[in-house]
Computed example of a mutant assay.
Amino acid sequence: MGPIGIFDSGYGGLTVFREIVKKLPLYDYVYLGDNARVPYGTRSFETVYAYTKECVESLFSMGCHLVVLACNTASAKALRTIQQKDLPHCPDLRKVLGVIRPTTEVIGLHTSTRHVGILATPGTVKSASYPIEIRKFFPDITVFQQACPMWVPLVENNELDSEGAAYFVEADIKRLLHQSPDIDTVILACTHYPLLLPLIRRFMPPSIQILPQGGLVADSLADYLKRHAEVEMLCTKNGRTHFFTTDNAADFEERAGRFYGQAVKASELKMQF
């Protein structure tokens, strides 16, 4: 038995993690942020897969049987390969889940016009993961994507209220909505983006619903554990949480609180690459 592992390329996954802890507070968790190698969004599929696999294996070595990739880029570029290529060769029961499916399998409940917008990193947009997954569940929905390459750096550097942040957020929203006047629901397909919600709401028409992923992923994980007793019974329940980063722990602690909503204590974990 062991904790549930939560992985992200940096800090953004903490916005998902806080919703998971809020929904499922009794479980033990280990969070790993690969801050030394962020950003993932502009890296190749091969590199993202290699980095993600190494971090997932680190969480497995800590006793995790279930790992959630709380990162859209890792979910888009690495999850399927890990599930199909690596997990079948594991000696015991191990599962890896992502954040894309929990979002796409419920999107049809939120849109009336069946025109949905995606705001994401260039890597997630290039992967076409959201259009592909949404089409599986709701073939009648048309998906429009907009890459937002500056949003993550703005969040990482705490430029949430700057003129530059306002400029890029407004410009990318305009580019998305220009693709279709009928978009009525927009998915924030990056876990950093909830920190920009005040700016996003400022420039998004009030008639358009904005969907951050944290609550959707937390609900999906709770449902998964109910449906998979063989996995749930391997998850320890002492309400303990541990944080790891591949970069300087003090730097991680300084920034992580903005994403997680409270102060955290972290340890450094060295990677091979």
Rank of each mutant, 00 (worst) to 15 (best):
N35R: 10
Y193H: 11
A189M: 06
F243I: 04
P3H: 10
P91Q: 14
F243L: 06
T241N: 14
R255V: 14
V143R: 04
Y260W: 08
P91E: 15
L154C: 08
L216A: 15
S44Y: 01
V264W: 01
D219L: 10
K265N: 13
N238V: 00
I173F: 01
N158G: 13
V96D: 09
V30H: 15
D92A: 13
R37L: 08
H115T: 02
T42H: 03
T245W: 05
L221E: 08
M150H: 05
A171N: 05
C148W: 05
A76T: 04
F45I: 12
F17K: 12
S180L: 13
A266W: 03
T246A: 15
L269V: 11
D34A: 12
I187W: 02
P102T: 07
V16Q: 05
F60D: 08
R175P: 00
S267R: 11
A128N: 12
K77F: 06
C235L: 13
I82C: 06
A189S: 13
T15E: 10
A78P: 02
M271I: 14
N35K: 11
T245D: 10
L269R: 15
Q209G: 04
G41P: 03
D184V: 11
Y11K: 04
T241L: 06
D140I: 01
T111W: 07
L93H: 10
P102L: 10
V217L: 08
S267Q: 13
A165R: 02
H242L: 00
L93T: 15
T111L: 14
P88T: 12
D34E: 12
A263I: 08
Q146D: 06
A166I: 02
R37T: 07
L154Q: 03
H228C: 09
I6C: 14
E46D: 14
T42I: 07
K174S: 06
P206V: 14
P88A: 10
M271R: 09
T185V: 15
A147K: 08
C64H: 06
A229W: 04
L216R: 07
L97M: 05
S220V: 06
T121V: 07
L197Y: 10
A120W: 05
D182G: 01
A166G: 09
L24F: 08
T142N: 09
E133I: 07
D92P: 01
